[in-house]
């Protein structure tokens, strides 16, 4: 048992960025992100016996993480903060790394306005998953995955634009 626990911990610590990114996409506040993070780790641990090594660990991990996030409801009704980020942020004088961080910050803020399925689609797309892989993970057809993803990208673009940011 201890050995299984150690192997599991080594594996999820190697890929814990996946959990961090999902929590940031699905939850807005730091406390809620921590709660979801904890829930994902718990569900990964509970589901670990189902991982038989037939697929890559990350493939299995994506599924458990996303399935947990899709049905996780911390509050009775999740209210999304739809306020755009500060429009007065000066993006001219900041260095490249800060610009990148800011881009991602705007992305995380914008995805809060997407529904849970759209968040999953964007997440898998950003994680370099092909349409076929997205379809397999979500349990929908490849055509449907492509159509949904394109719609979600358009929606995300318009949210970012509406929030006064362009990249």
């Amino acid at each position: 048992m201890k050995e299984t626990e150690n192997i599991f911990l080594t594996l999820i610590n190697q890929h814990r960025a996946i959990i961090h990114k999902i929590t940031k996409m699905y939850m807005n506040g730091a406390e809620e992100q921590r709660d979801l993070f904890q829930e994902i780790v718990l569900q990964l641990w509970k589901a670990y016996p189902t991982f038989r090594g037939n697929s890559k660990f990350t493939t299995w991990m994506y599924r458990v993480c996303l399935n947990t996030a899709l049905i996780y409801f911390k509050k009775d009704s999740r209210k999304v903060d739809k306020m755009p980020l500060d429009e007065n942020i000066d993006i001219i004088d900041v260095n490249e790394s800060e610009v990148k961080e800011e881009k991602l910050a705007y992305l995380y803020a914008a995805v809060q306005e997407l529904n849970v399925v759209e968040k999953a689609l964007i997440f898998l797309f950003l994680e370099n998953q092909s349409h076929r892989e997205i379809a397999e993970n979500m349990g929908i057809s490849e055509v449907n995955a492509r159509v949904k993803l394109n719609r979600t990208k358009e929606k995300l673009q318009s949210i970012i634009k509406k929030n006064g940011y362009e990249f």
């Binding site: 911990l9 610590n13 904890q38 911390k74 881009k103 991602l104 950003l126 370099n128 990249f167």
Partner: peptide
């Protein structure tokens, strides 16, 4: 570009410890 930046981002945070595996109460519906 966004994808490249996304993949370059590596949120650190603390290591996941055995304590986190001891939580019993899950919060799915």
């Amino acid at each position: 570009d966004l994808k490249n930046e996304w993949n370059a981002e590596n949120p650190e945070g603390n290591n996941i410890s055995t304590d986190m595996l001891k939580i019993k109460q899950a919060h799915t519906p």
